[in-house]
Design a protein around this nucleic acid. Structure first.
Length: 315
DNA sequence: ACTAGCCCCTGGGAGC
DNA sequence: TGCTCCCAGGGGCTAG
């Protein structure tokens, strides 16, 4: 699912191709993706307003804040996209679908979720059943939102008020931003009684970390996910701080994690899933040097946590 | 002030 | 083969 490295990859790639292009049109078959502040907007009236705000606007650049992709428009607005679990932004020759896309898919590809790049039809490149929103661009290509579970949120807000916007206003410092170990510790200690796994994933404490990368950084720093924040020794927290930076950078180096539906804007899968040591490794031997543990799965705050009970210490 | 649990959603896997 | 049930989960929200 898109966490910091996936969102970072997306915004970096989009920033290479979108600046200077003009949005010619917007299409959606699922208006519930659109939000105005906290409110989910289902009315056609709002879609009209959304369209008015973005159609005709030139894209200035693309950046990121936490897990949000920010598409800045020259007209003074910013389109904020949160991809949630299965959403991702694609650039290509996507067009709005008329009725069921299945009918138009060549027999050999029916039921296939992803069409290999080499086999994509130049006319419908690529065919993706889960595209629910498309921005047509002046280059002839389009920017499309694909989202199996339809949780992604899109809103448009004046760029000046961006930091005050719902979804951004309460975000903590970026996990890969310039913040020192001292600040890291201070942030975590805002929830002294919290379980470390949950606190790491709390976007108001630190922005950008989700389930996959929190499992991986705890595995690396040998800390049990249920450890109480206030009980973790300073030395262990330092390891965690280092692991956080390393794991997230590695995620970016590998083009993100495509264990779930994530794809880069080009449609290519990331490769970080090949580097997992804990996440979704339940039942497999722990790969830490000399460790004889088996990866276990438990629930922490309603989310699954994967860890090795032998080398990851419970504080 | 907490936290556990529901909700949004749908593909995929397990079980029958 | 085909049906039903359950699970995945970010983050907002509510009930306790």
């Amino acid at each position: 699912m898109p966490e910091l490295p996936e969102v970072h990859t997306t915004s970096t790639e989009l920033n290479k191709v979108l600046p200077g292009l003009v949005i010619h049109d917007v299409w959606t078959d699922y208006q519930s993706h659109l939000y105005e502040g906290k409110k989910q907007i289902k009315s056609k009236k709002y879609f009209k307003q959304f369209k008015k705000d973005v159609v005709g606007a030139k894209i200035k650049n693309v950046s990121r804040r936490g897990k949000n992709v920010l598409i800045h428009l020259a007209a003074g607005n910013t389109v904020v996209v949160h991809m949630k679990m299965t959403g991702h932004l694609l650039v290509g020759r996507y067009t709005k679908r008329a009725g069921s896309s299945q009918a138009k898919i060549p027999e050999a590809w029916r039921g296939q979720k992803w069409i290999p790049v080499s086999e994509r039809s130049p006319l419908r490149d690529p065919i993706n059943r889960f595209i629910h929103l498309v921005f047509s661009l002046s280059s002839g290509k389009s920017l499309a939102l694909s989202d199996v579970r339809k949780f992604a949120k899109i809103s448009v807000t004046p760029t000046k008020e961006l930091e005050k916007t719902e979804g951004l206003i309460r975000l903590g410092p970026d996990a890969l931003g310039k913040f020192s170990f001292k600040q890291f510790k201070e942030r975590l200690c805002q929830k002294p009684n919290g379980k470390i796994k949950q606190v790491l994933m709390d976007q108001e404490i630190i922005a950008g970390i989700g389930n996959i990368y929190s499992d991986e950084m705890l595995w690396r720093s040998s800390i049990h996910p249920l450890s109480k924040v206030s009980k973790i020794p300073n030395k262990e927290l330092q390891k965690l701080y280092q692991a956080m930076k390393q794991v997230l950078k590695k995620g970016i180096d590998f083009g993100g994690d495509s264990d779930s539906d994530y794809r880069q804007p080009s449609g290519l899968a990331g490769r970080f899933q090949e580097k997992h040591r804990a996440y979704r490794k339940t039942g497999q031997p722990c790969e830490k040097n000399g460790c004889s543990g088996i990866i276990k799965r438990i629930k922490v705050g309603g989310r699954s946590a994967h860890f090795c009970a032998i080398h990851q210490k419970l504080f």
